[in-house]
Amino acid sequence: MRRTPLSPGTLDSVDRAIINALQDGFPVSHRPFAEAGAALSLSEAELIERIGRLREMGAITRFGPFFDAEAMGGAFCLCAMAVPQAQFEDVMTLVNAHPEVAHNYERSHRLNMWFVLACEKASAIEKVADSIERETGIRVLRFPKLKEFFIGFRVAA
């Protein structure tokens, strides 16, 4: 995924209108591009062409359904460790070697390694976290989600 800003002027006002409108939703219907295009005064073909271009240039990361991985039966847990600087690379290698570690970030804090465990079953979370503790000799603090709040996040294009 692209992690740098597009140069100014890459997007025109129509691109921006598309991004702003379709973050909120896309129709589930026979001709959804025609329907969504009409609301933006765009033809079906033009909307399809522009979404393809926005995807190619990396202005959008996804276009389609967003699934709730927990509703599909997965289990997740945010974990954190306080890793001494001298051991950091070794611990990172041990942690990342677990396929259940979905992403892992170094963060500016005494708890400097933060990762998400993603497992098919909830019981596997504790097992993986315990084995990381055994392998590294460092406590794995576990922060399972108790409640998730939805979600006003919008990116103004």
Binding site: P5, V28, R62
Partner: peptide
Amino acid sequence: LNAMIEKGVIRRIALAPNHYALGMT
């Protein structure tokens, strides 16, 4: 798809902007 939206398995069908590309770095 509509049934999965109803059940919350699908949160929404939409476009996800790349916030890095749009300057929120």
